[in-house]
């Protein structure tokens, strides 16, 4: 029974804040587990590379396809490159990679930590003088926060390349003017704002996934619920925070 309206919402936000705080508090304390950090970076970053690249490339291709025809109506098709590159770099690469990673890495964290919770492995950690946030959550959160901008940087490139393929190879645009327009209006701040967003999304994905995992209850069914919630809540958090970050960064 909820006493307050949105009680559940506030509880989740409170737990999320607590996890985030504990991650920050535990980060500077030894022992530093760089091997685990590396392992998580490979799992989150390297293993997600193909699907993130594919998503970015096809998004760039579709954008070029769509905008080429529309811009051609008023003779502005030479700006396809600018449109694709700016949209990818400022917005799409970060959000789409974030959503892909929420489904790939966030869900895995929710499921793994959730299983550890219901099989008492989390209790076992605590009994053996190990804080679960220090041991499990810190490396995951940092790994995701570090890897997301790197993934997004590559996704930027893939999106631009996809746009080039469609505009130049398929629609017959002039390659030199296409490339010229791709970078003509772009500023460094476009790139950095996208990467800052990416890091923020990475933090959200991992912290939400780990939080859902740690608070799992009720056996296999509970693990399923935690996994689903990891993805749903992280996706919502990405979309909402994207708006505010965009407002803030420009």
């Amino acid at each position: 029974m909820s006493v307050l309206p949105f009680e559940g919402f506030f509880r989740e936000v409170g737990r999320f804040g607590r996890i985030l705080w504990r991650v920050l508090a535990w980060t500077p304390r030894p022992p530093y587990d760089f091997r685990e950090l590396g392992r998580q970076m490979v799992r989150v970053g390297v293993d997600s590379l193909p699907v993130v690249m594919l998503t970015a490339m096809f998004t760039g291709m579709v954008m070029a396809l769509q905008t080429f025809n529309v811009l051609a109506r008023f003779g502005a098709e030479r700006y396809v490159g600018s449109l694709v590159s700016l949209s990818m770099v400022r917005e799409l690469a970060a959000v789409l990679s974030g959503l892909v990673l929420a489904g790939r890495a966030g869900s895995a964290m929710g499921a793994e930590l959730g299983t550890m919770r219901v099989t008492e492995q989390i209790d076992a950690l605590e009994v053996m003088a190990t804080d679960p946030v220090h041991y499990l959550v810190v490396p995951r959160v940092w790994a995701t926060t570090i890897m997301m901008p790197l993934l997004v940087l590559l996704a930027d490139g893939m999106g631009i390349w996809g746009g080039y393929l469609v505009a130049v190879v398929l629609m017959g645009a002039n390659p030199v003017s296409h490339m010229d327009n791709t970078f003509r209006f772009m500023e460094v701040s476009d790139l950095t704002s996208g990467l800052i967003k990416a890091a923020a999304f990475g933090l959200l994905i991992a912290a939400i996934g780990c939080q859902q995992g740690l608070y799992t209850r009720g056996g296999a069914e509970g693990v399923g619920r935690a996994t689903t919630r990891s993805v749903v809540l992280a996706s919502i958090a990405i979309l909402i925070s994207d708006f505010f970050l965009t407002k803030l960064l420009f």
Partner: peptide
């Protein structure tokens, strides 16, 4: 502490 199902990692 030894847990019911072992709780091994």
């Amino acid at each position: 502490m030894a847990f019911q199902e072992g709780a091994l990692f």
